[in-house]
């Protein structure tokens, strides 16, 4: 590319003066938070890919790999988490149906959000119960490689889910306060993240079920 090949750019006179700041910046920031969620999802996927490959390598070369019967409550928990995705989807529908949120719409959205939040917390409680059941069988973090991976996978998933819980709490807080504003972008990004948590859990359950 040599400097002689630049084609002259035709520039409207009106644009030549720098434009004043305006609301355009807002949509760019919304876009950025949307990208942010996807980038985060990408990074989290990578992390769990690393955990999974660790599991494969660890299983491959070892003689102490045993079999672990998953506590049945995990399947109930799965249902609870997926149900949370459904309630959140209902909330999304309510948000999308209203160009402006009147008090009635706010109530609907808030109801679904609180339902999601409750289901999320129930899932965590259920996972805790699964841990207790394993512990009652004498299976702790360091007992054998299978139990180690079980606790690590479920623990890391809950750690990430807590981020989603915090985002839900934030959204509910926004709807409760009468003077605050509602950010559609934040709502949609939370929804993307929450659904991803569900997908991630299904993947982990599959790995735990087939490999442990």
């Amino acid at each position: 590319m040599s400097s002689t090949t630049y084609t002259p750019v035709a520039i409207p006179v009106a644009q030549q003066a720098r434009t004043r700041v305006n609301v355009v910046a807002r949509s760019a920031a919304d876009g950025a938070s949307r990208s942010g969620v996807w980038v985060a999802i990408f990074a989290i996927t990578m992390s769990f890919a690393a955990f999974t490959s660790a599991l494969f390598v660890r299983e491959g070369g070892s003689v102490d790999w045993t079999h672990l019967v998953l506590p049945p409550i995990l399947y109930a928990n799965t249902l609870v988490l997926l149900l949370g995705s459904v309630t959140l989807w209902m909330a999304s529908r309510a948000v999308n149906a209203h160009a402006l949120l009147d008090s009635h719409a706010v109530k609907t959205v808030m109801g679904w959000l609180i339902a999601t939040l409750a289901l999320g917390l129930l899932f965590i409680a259920g996972q805790y119960e699964a841990w207790s059941q394993l512990a009652a069988q004498g299976l702790f973090l360091s007992t054998n490689p299978n139990s180690s991976f079980f606790y690590v996978f479920t623990g890391m998933h809950i750690l990430h889910l807590l981020g989603g819980i915090a985002a839900l709490v934030y959204l509910v807080g926004q709807l409760v306060g009468s003077h605050t504003t509602f950010r559609r972008a934040a709502f949609h990004n939370t929804a993307i993240y929450w659904h991803f948590m569900g997908v991630l859990w299904l993947y982990l359950l599959f790995v735990l079920r087939t490999k442990l």
């Binding site: 700041v21 910046a25 807002r26 949509s27 760019a28 920031a29 919304d30 950025a32 938070s33 402006l100 949120l101 009147d102 008090s103 706010v106 709807l175 605050t180 504003t181 509602f182 950010r183 559609r184 972008a185 934040a186």
Partner: peptide, 10 residues
């Protein structure tokens, strides 16, 4: 209820 975008401009 007011709606707004994130205050990226601090």
């Amino acid at each position: 209820m007011q709606e707004a975008s994130p205050a990226q401009v601090h």
